[in-house]
Amino acid sequence: MNAMLDDVRSEALFASDVQRSQEPTAELIRAAVIAMMERLGTTGCAEKVAEEFGEHPECALNRMRWARTATRMAFG
């Protein structure tokens, strides 16, 4: 269950406008994840991730790695 929740949170952060270069706080990351889940839902976030991997795979991989690390840090 935790792994599935980690995936959903990572996809939501990935789909958001938050950038690694902003050096976002845990609070900002949590807010972005919640906002994207409310806006797009689980399926919508997954679709955004798939779209980015299809169009920009060279950038998407690094963004997903960052999103996973950032959400684990923000949500504990």
Rank of each mutant, 00 (worst) to 15 (best):
M1T: 07
A3K: 13
A3P: 14
L5K: 13
L5M: 09
D6E: 15
D6K: 09
D7G: 13
V8T: 12
R9K: 14
R9C: 05
S10P: 00
E11Y: 04
E11R: 14
A12T: 08
A15K: 08
Q19I: 04
S21A: 09
Q22W: 05
Q22S: 12
E23K: 10
E23W: 00
P24F: 03
P24V: 01
T25E: 14
T25I: 08
A26Y: 02
E27S: 14
L28E: 12
I29K: 06
I29T: 13
R30K: 04
R30Q: 11
R30I: 00
A32F: 04
A32V: 03
A32W: 02
A35F: 01
M36C: 09
M36P: 02
E38L: 08
E38F: 06
E38Q: 15
R39M: 05
R39N: 07
L40K: 14
L40E: 15
G44V: 03
C45I: 01
C45T: 08
E47Q: 10
E47M: 05
A50V: 07
F53I: 02
H56Q: 12
P57E: 04
P57C: 06
C59W: 11
L61A: 15
L61N: 13
N62Y: 06
R65W: 04
W66M: 07
A67Q: 09
A70H: 07
T71P: 05
R72Q: 10
M73Q: 09
M73D: 11
M73E: 11
M73A: 09
A74K: 03
F75R: 04
G76D: 12
